[in-house]
Design a protein around this nucleic acid. Sequence first.
DNA 1: CCTGCCACCTGCGGGC
DNA 2: TGCCCGCAGGTGGCAG
Length: 305
Amino acid sequence: MPELPEVETVRQGLNQVTLNQAVMGGEVLLNRTLAYPFSVDEFLQNLTGIAIAQWHRRGKYLLAELVKLDLEKNPGGWLGVHLRMTGQLLWVDQEDPLQKHTRIRLFFAKNRELRFVDQRTFGQMWWVPPDQKISNIITGLNNLGPEPFAAEFSVDYLQDQFKKRQRPIKSALLDQKLVAGVGNIYADEALFLSGISPTTPCTSLTRLQLEALRSHIIQVLEKSIQAGGTTIRNFLNVQGINGNYGGAAWVYNRTGEPCRICETPIERLKLAGRSAHFCPQCQGEGNREWGITNYELRMGNREIR
DNA sequence: CCTGCCACCTGCGGGC
DNA sequence: TGCCCGCAGGTGGCAG
């Protein structure tokens, strides 16, 4: 389900409904969804009597800052969640019928519940003790590059990273160590908007292309956050509502359909084990000189289908 | 070190 | 109708 915009949409929703309410207990229906601690009892005991002070996001990870509900309001550690392919966090009533793929339930005051539903079971949850470094428990956090909206994610940074990388740019964009949060949909979309073929070796990208790519990654992620995430397949926000980006995809999941700019059929090939969707015309070899300015010009001259 | 490949799961849609 | 294949938002481990 989720790339950065979907995770960010879930985070914002969780901050509206789950904060400062007592956790009364919970239920783990699938043990391996719990990544840490290994003991279900230890997990539930440590969450009982705490509240969530704030939800944060790092890449595609959701991190809830916990506070104990004692007089001192001591730190209660962290609750980490990764939705992987099909995870959903839903804010429901405890009486609501269980979804088929319900994995973990956290019971809150007033009969409310934070329910983790995950068809393919890749999703994971961690409880991080207050005295532990978060990345020691959620080790995937050590493999994350800069957030796409951070100043660190600059053209200079990309140029430096790509100096001697021979692999295709599409593979690089899916690597969370290069930039955190970009996944298959937005990688394809950003490459299309930048006029870059997904197979282009990183080393051969021009400065102009890197400028276009950086700004279109940011643009496509921001637009999707504003739309509440993509509609593709089973993405739902905490209220169980679909996002609104998918209908507007330029190339993702559009194999064989006409390019919205030039009407050439969208093609698909396999890269890094994932589908790459692209327009062979707009992202062809002759487009090396395109940058933001040329792209905007091109957009202005064409009727969008 | 860098890169690609595969596994981890469940379900769905298309072809025969 | 049913079986088999390929495919699906991600990532981590392993081999070359």
